[in-house]
Design a binder for these strands. Sequence first.
DNA 1: CTGAAAGCGCTAACAG
DNA 2: CTGTTAGCGCTTTCAG
Lengths: 330, 330
Amino acid sequence: MKNLPSIDEVARLAGVSIATVSRVMNNSKPVNPETRKRVERAIAATGYRGNAAGRSLAMAQSHLLMVLVPDFANPFYAQIVQGVESVIRPAGYKLLLTDAAGDEAPHTTALDAIYNRLADGVINLAHLNDDGTLLGELRNLPWVNCSEYLPKAGPPYVSIDHRQAAIDAVQFLLNRGHRRIGLITADETYRWAQLRHEGYEMAIERAGLKPDAQLVRLAASLDYDAGAQAAGGLLALLEPPTAVFAVSDTLAIGAIKAFRRAGRRVPEDIAVVGFDDLPLSAVFEPALTTVSQPMRELGATAAEILLARLSGQRPASRTLGHQLVVRDSA
Amino acid sequence: MKNLPSIDEVARLAGVSIATVSRVMNNSKPVNPETRKRVERAIAATGYRGNAAGRSLAMAQSHLLMVLVPDFANPFYAQIVQGVESVIRPAGYKLLLTDAAGDEAPHTTALDAIYNRLADGVINLAHLNDDGTLLGELRNLPWVNCSEYLPKAGPPYVSIDHRQAAIDAVQFLLNRGHRRIGLITADETYRWAQLRHEGYEMAIERAGLKPDAQLVRLAASLDYDAGAQAAGGLLALLEPPTAVFAVSDTLAIGAIKAFRRAGRRVPEDIAVVGFDDLPLSAVFEPALTTVSQPMRELGATAAEILLARLSGQRPASRTLGHQLVVRDSA
DNA sequence: CTGAAAGCGCTAACAG
DNA sequence: CTGTTAGCGCTTTCAG
């Protein structure tokens, strides 16, 4: 690649100092209109565009924000990232994306980015090991957690109220007259899974029903198959549930497929409620009744918090609203 | 954020010059084991991690690669990005992601990144306006196009043979005895749409059938609804098709929904073949018969080409294989 | 309103 | 094997 023009070529051509060129590039200080015109012409003539590294070094800012994503291929995260970008870009920042999958220590990557000054801040969507020290450290860094509910001691976060959302979902089933409601949960080192599980238990108890451990199934992963398998366990019960709440749509869909294969109709024989409202969930048949999270807004809010943090404020965590979307599966 | 230690603090603490610190940081030159140890201790003591901007400036390399994505939320692209990252990361590069949607001039953003030296190279997944000048310019830059077939005059690309893939899909339908085959195509400024359309026409003609313009419908977008609407047009024909090839799975699924709503069974009354093999397509019922592209491999190959380009080689374009996945919809 | 000059933090000759 | 030194390209006082 050929050598790019640098600021002093432009200065020489325009017959000004590099300081002036810098000023017109950034509109940072008033410049005489005539001079400005000359500089602009020189910029156009040379095709000068500036050099990011020089700029970053001088300003001690990279204008890059890192987003740590657990899994690119999951559209759930993709929408959050869109939300992030929508507020970051107008503010002059760019996205440094890292897939936490395949990274032994994902948050180390992100921490490095900050300490390296590669990124000015981090928005983390990935699971954080509840290491007390880590949380304390993050608190003092330009770091925001998104879609994971964190203890007060940690950095600010944006999330929905997972527990309440689960209560809403189960309450909906209760309102429809269901009394035997199963739960398909996922790895509960994920705090959202744990919270949704808690919500399920609370709703059941509040309704005066007695919890039945047999009705709770732990899916091996978030895949359809894992959902189907967990559903199979429920079906095998002497007294199977008449309704199931799954902590994610993928699990719910897997469960529905399993129920159907076993000759059960959904929702007539067994109702299913999911969580997330993936794009797929509306298209699937029966269309899924599920809890929808404001994905883009989660991302946008996280970005706003981070930007506020970068401008020296101390923004608080935020909890956004969720919504039960009633469709055909329950 | 507190001030980070810089290289000369480490040097002072270790009693060496900054050059030596640099050498142990990068393992760039032999260093006496004893000295190294002292430096390492100083690094640990200060928590020194280096500064990306200083490094970039001195080396004239950012170790950042930009990927220009038309739409984050589309899982198709997400998988390509995963492929890219899988080869980029071990090579010490990081991903700078940009969503082309909502950007008036997406490739300008990418070009800026190169000219700014913000990124060392670009992998573009977005549609490129066939501006002859642009293609010529890109040819000389560290730029690779992925999943779009480009003229020879442009920069290297990685893609499948869209035309042949479409021929395969339609031929499959012909082999099953269909003689009246509809096409649901999309905005043909997308070269892949245009090529798949061409493949459709070629297969029809080779089979000795005469093309019928009425059987070709242009969907307004790639949404399910657009597919449904196009399908409606086909259904309204005096002599509707017995099979349909849609240039994308989303369109195919929309079409299936429309057919079902109209009381047609798929595939019994009307067979449908899609394109892309989205994750959803296997889960949908009926499971979609479709053409699958090697997404991750497309991304990985693009990254390899770009890396080769960066190391001074002149890698050629590559065409990867596709595969017809026969499931239940046809 | 403009210029000179001092860095920002690092790498890479070059000398020793 | 190690230190000195000259930049890399830019922003930002500080004078004028």
